[in-house]
Amino acid sequence: MKNIVLAEDHAIIRDGLKLLVSTRPNLCVVADTGDGGEVERLLREHQPDLLLLDLDLPGLHGIELTRRIKASLPNVRVLILTGSPGAASVRAAFEAGADGYVLKHENADELLHAISLVLSGIVYLSKGLGSMTDLPSPPVPAALTAREQQVLALIAQGASSNDIAARLHLSVLTVRKHRQNLMVKLSLHNVAEVTAYALRSNLFAPSP
């Protein structure tokens, strides 16, 4: 059973989300709140697997909450649920350590899919955001090869080493070596940082 804390300031939406989650036998909402100032206390009390977090909460904004949670409770995965598709919000969320970003206009099945992926350690980004072009694009270091850029983009989409090997027609050992090289070259330490970099670099549409 995977436990979830839900933070959403609209009671009707919160009740609907609890009902939706209850349709999955392996998921349970153990606590919920509409106040950003209550979230950290609930997380410490219940030690959930996942926080489903609205960005625009009274008391404490979701970006700052994410940053604080990842510093003090790094084992809690954070899935942002918001109506804001803005590039700045997406970038800030991942840079704060978010594990996924889903828009409220997605359907119920897509949200459940996002929850499942994030709980499995895979970064989720709403489909409509994968082709964002208004993100500031830092230059890709000259030392990063075209193949490493492809691997970087696929990691950011949540692909495993096996998935990347199959898509790029490489051995798993080669993919792992590429992963190690690009993380060192870019000074990246985890998938959230990879995702944030890929967003800024517009690397979500690789061309294998």
Results as ranks from 00 to 15, higher is better:
Asn202Lys: 10
Asn190Met: 02
Glu64Asn: 11
Leu19Val: 14
Ala159Cys: 14
Leu51Thr: 03
Thr195Glu: 05
Glu148Cys: 13
Ala93His: 02
Thr82Ala: 08
Gln157Ser: 04
Ala196Tyr: 04
Lys127Phe: 10
Pro141Lys: 10
Leu6Val: 11
Leu73Cys: 07
Leu144Phe: 03
Ser160Tyr: 02
Ala205Arg: 15
Glu110Ile: 13
Asp109Leu: 12
Val76Arg: 00
Leu144Cys: 11
Ala114Pro: 01
Ile69Ala: 00
Arg14Trp: 07
Glu40Met: 15
Glu110Asn: 11
Lys2Phe: 14
Leu186Tyr: 10
Asp134Lys: 07
Ala159Gln: 15
Pro85Trp: 04
Pro206Val: 08
Asn3Lys: 15
Val175His: 04
His189Asp: 07
Arg41Phe: 09
Leu43Arg: 05
Ala142Met: 03
Pro138Asp: 06
Asp134Glu: 06
Val102Asn: 01
Thr23His: 09
Gln157Tyr: 06
Thr23Lys: 12
Lys18Asn: 10
Leu81Asn: 11
Ser131Trp: 14
Ala7Val: 02
Lys70His: 03
Glu95Lys: 02
Asn190Asp: 04
Met132His: 06
Ile13Phe: 14
Pro58Phe: 10
Leu199Thr: 00
Ser160Lys: 02
Asp134Gly: 07
Gly86Trp: 11
Asn202Gly: 08
Leu129Ser: 04
Asp56Tyr: 15
Leu152Asp: 08
Asn190Gln: 13
Val194Leu: 07
Val30Arg: 05
Asp49Pro: 12
Lys177Trp: 12
Pro85Asp: 03
Asn202Arg: 11
Ser201Glu: 15
Tyr197Val: 02
Leu173Met: 10
Leu170Glu: 04
Asn190Glu: 04
Leu6Tyr: 05
Tyr101Met: 06
Leu112Met: 06
Ala205Trp: 15
Asn162Pro: 08
Leu81Val: 05
Glu106Phe: 13
Asn181Cys: 12
Val175Gly: 02
Arg176Lys: 15
Gly83His: 07
Leu79Cys: 07
Ile164Cys: 08
Lys127Asn: 06
Val5Gly: 00
Ala156Val: 08
Leu199Ala: 08
Asp49Leu: 10
Val118Lys: 07
Ala156Gly: 05
Gln157Thr: 12
Tyr124Trp: 06
Val184Pro: 08
Leu6Pro: 00
Asn3Cys: 08
Leu57Glu: 00
Ser89Pro: 08
Leu6Arg: 01
Pro58Met: 12
Ala146Met: 11
Thr33Trp: 01
Phe204Met: 09
Leu186Arg: 04
Leu188Gln: 00
Leu154Gln: 15
Gly16Asp: 12
Asn107Asp: 13
Gly16Pro: 03
Leu43Glu: 03
Val78His: 01
Lys70Phe: 10
Val118Asp: 03
Ala93Pro: 04
Gly59Pro: 12
Leu170Ala: 02
Ile80Asn: 01
Ser171Val: 11
Ser120Cys: 05
Gly100Pro: 01
Asn190Trp: 09
Gly121Lys: 13
Gln180Gly: 14
Ala11Cys: 03
Ala156Asp: 01
Val184Ala: 14
Ser187Asp: 13
Glu106Ala: 12
Cys28His: 13
Ser120Gly: 14
Arg167Asp: 13
Ala146Arg: 12
Ser72Met: 12
Lys177Ser: 11
Gly130Ser: 11
Glu64Arg: 04
Thr23Asp: 09
Ser207Leu: 13
Met183Trp: 04
Leu125Ser: 00
Thr174Cys: 09
His189Arg: 13
